[in-house]
Design a protein around this nucleic acid. Structure first.
Lengths: 103, 103
DNA sequence: TTGACTGGTAAGAGATCTCTTACGTATTAT
DNA sequence: ATAATACGTAAGAGATCTCTTACCAGTCAA
């Protein structure tokens, strides 16, 4: 189990889209695959990467396998990017940009 | 200008390490390269990827090129991961984990 | 049991990534 | 001017990624 790096797992737009899909709840593979213009085995392989990164978990339901989102590894990503927050804030002050984007 | 995806740019541990380095201020290429066990051209190529992702900017100083961090594209990453915050919080409530990690 | 459905894995093709060495250009020093 | 320094890019090797098709096992329905 090489345990894939979460940054590597989310580098693929397809895999990010799968995670987005799973926000609505667990889904069987054939359901996930229906959303993409690629074969089911290809989706299966993306799911494997996500599983190895700990971003999804598999639950067997009859002959289906439901994939459930597990967002916890994304905290690593949040924390890493968060350390740079002061830089873009600094940038904003410096350039007078984004001042009204308090959101 | 294919403009590289920021998720792709930060997928590499080397490139994340370069960004971390540049937090201490702009540095010339030979200085950055000294921190890695690879040749200077290899580092140069990583810097190109970061530049194309908008994560660093180049400033010419004499015969050196100083690379300066520009963290703004990381907001995209923060925002994306942030949308999943409720899921890991949900997870925490559900499993009774992380309850004291209020920080 | 037989047949349909769900989904994983293997093998291989082609694209892409990530290094290396070789070389060219611009700037600075002697 | 000549040499040294700083750096980019080109070309190519080898690894890895991302698909495909082919095939397998497990589950459910008739």
């Amino acid at each position: 189990m090489p345990d894939i790096d979460v940054f590597d797992a989310i580098a693929s737009p397809v895999r990010r889209a799968i995670l987005d899909l799973l926000q609505d709840g667990a889904r069987p593979v054939h359901d996930v695959a229906a959303s993409f213009a690629m074969t089911r085995p290809a989706v299966s392989q993306h799911l494997r990467v996500l599983r190895q990164a700990g971003l999804v978990a598999e639950e067997r339901v009859g002959r289906e396998r439901h994939y459930r989102l597990d967002a916890r590894p994304l905290r690593t990503v949040m924390n890493w990017a968060g350390h740079y927050e002061r830089f873009w804030q600094h940038h904003a002050r410096l350039l007078g940009e984004l001042l009204e984007e308090g959101e």
